[in-house]
Nucleic acid binder design. Structure first.
Length: 439
RNA sequence: GACCCUAUCGUCCAGCGGUUAGGACACCGCCCUUUCACGGCGGUGACACGGGUUCGAAUCCCGUUAGGGUCGCCA
């Protein structure tokens, strides 16, 4: 039987990073065995069921590049994939339980009568766990239907997993304690339970379950703050799973090749934005220029950078790519290349241009550059260093003023690359402008 | 409270009876005669505690403590 896994979020208005990781693991596992990932929306709670909430799930999954083979938007042989549209199916299974004498009414709601036995969960991550369900006080019969006829999660979740022929249920550990109840349902329905794998939870810095209020708990946070999907995917897979050999930076194909449920640990992990940030820089550095451009263009466009030709933009992106950490920083990092009205950072001006002798050095450098016949990164670098040595000065004493003069900032791409792209005339003019700015 | 899970540097992850307990992020220092949210080198820093088992325990067992989860007519 081919592997079928599922991601079954409820539309809460945003995609939680924990959910994203669950989707990731389900996807990895299904692909590893040539199986399918099914997207099912658990929207039995009417209140949450809005089109926007649904869209947040699609947007998040699409942004990450996770693909599912069956779902509300894709169809499939076991649809519909929206629980709100599966009422007839639930009625059928409900009748089956009723026929078997498993149900009873309680205050208008319907409960499932527990067999009151010990249920053993054989979890692919957690191992074999026995739950003693005999005490009705500690394990009350679960409600499966409300008085208004609507369904409760436990019931529809199990019915759907049976109907959709799920072979593996990979979900958060918060469901581990619910699993024996689900198994009771499978047994009452005469169905074989799927294999379960409960993955550890993602906690915030206080050690509590990551909630909506925590920074970075929503996948949208990463999209908005200039993270690249490959870095987020990489970071997420490292929470609770290890590729072995102390590997940290991985591409999706590498993750796919190395992933296995047996390498998932059972400890909850605290979400650490710092490492994700570092990974983001690493992935940007290592990705192709084309990919970087593809990811940067929305930010550049949004900031209305007048980059002129595509060729000019690509040149700018090339010199910025090795150092930039967030896509959202790209506009600020390349903006000065395309306008003579670039702003001067007062602090940078103070530090680099108002130092004793700084403007003199800038003038000297300008003169030397003016006589330079060839304007390329190597020739510019050679001339600047030559000048520094001949004057007994440190290279940095020329580099700093030049950088601030030409870009208005103390940080940015490599100086010589910047100068080359700008061209000699603009550089010399900017040196002049800097003198005015420093005055 | 009951039940379940967990317990290695601040954080993430290695370790699966014998290691100077390893890597990464962060932090600190030095270097790169180009600043840096670049790069290189080095450093600080952990086996929660108490009992066992064993020639030998971070590794196995028990207990304690701590943290997390579940006990909904939420999902």
């Amino acid at each position: 039987m081919s592997v079928r896994t599922r991601f079954a979020p409820s539309p809460t208005g945003y995609l939680h990073v924990g959910g994203a990781r669950t989707a990731l693991f389900n996807s990895l596992y299904a692909r590893k065995f040539g199986g399918k990932l099914i997207l099912r929306i658990e929207d039995t709670d009417e209140k949450r069921n809005t089109p926007e909430a649904m869209q947040a799930i699609y947007d998040g999954l699409n942004w990450l590049g996770l693909e599912w083979q069956e779902g509300p938007d894709k169809g499939g042989d076991y649809g519909p994939y929206l629980q709100s549209q599966r009422n007839a199916i639930y009625e059928k299974y409900f009748a089956q339980l009723q026929g078997g004498g498993h149900l009873y009414e309680d205050g208008g709601a319907v409960r499932f009568r527990s067999p009151r036995k010990t249920v053993t969960v054989e979890d692919l991550v957690c191992g074999k766990i026995a739950f003693d369900m005999s005490n009705p006080v500690t394990h009350p019969d679960m409600t499966i239907r409300r008085p208004d006829g609507s369904w409760i999660f436990h019931f529809v979740n199990v019915v759907d997993d049976i109907e959709m022929k799920m072979t593996h249920v990979i979900r958060g550990e918060d469901h581990l304690s619910n699993t024996p109840k689900h198994i009771e349902l499978y047994q009452a329905l005469g169905a074989e339970p799927p294999k379960f794998a409960h993955i550890p939870l993602i906690l915030n810095h206080e050690g509590k379950k990551l909630s909506k209020r925590d920074g970075g708990s929503s996948l949208a946070y990463f999209v908005e703050n200039g993270y690249v999907p490959e870095a987020v995917l990489n970071y997420l897979c490292l929470l609770g799973w290890s590729p072995g050999e102390n590997r940290e930076m991985l591409t999706m194909p590498e993750i796919q090749a190395l992933f296995g449920l047996e390498d998932i640990n059972r400890r909850n992990a605290i979400f650490d934005l710092d490492k994700c940030f570092w990974l983001n820089g690493q992935h940007i550095q290592h990705m192709s220029l084309e990919r970087f451009a593809e990811l940067s263009v929305p930010c550049v466009t949004k900031a209305a950078i007048p980059y002129g030709t595509e060729d000019a933009l690509m040149k700018a992106l090339t010199i910025v790519k090795p150092k930039v950490k967030h896509l959202t920083d790209v506009p600020a990092w390349i903006g000065f290349l395309f306008t003579e009205e670039y702003p001067f950072d007062p602090e940078a001006v103070d530090k680099a241009l108002r130092k004793p002798g700084a403007l003199d050095r800038l003038r000297t450098l300008g003169t030397a550059f003016g006589e330079l016949a060839e304007w390329t990164h190597p020739s510019i670098e050679a001339r600047l260093k030559e000048l520094a040595i001949s004057l007994g000065a440190k290279v940095g004493e020329f580099v700093h003023p030049a950088r601030v003069a030409v870009s208005g900032k103390a940080v940015g791409p490599g100086l010589y690359e910047m100068l080359e792209i700008l061209g000699k005339e603009r550089v010399l003019a900017r040196f002049q402008r800097a003198e005015a700015a420093a005055a």
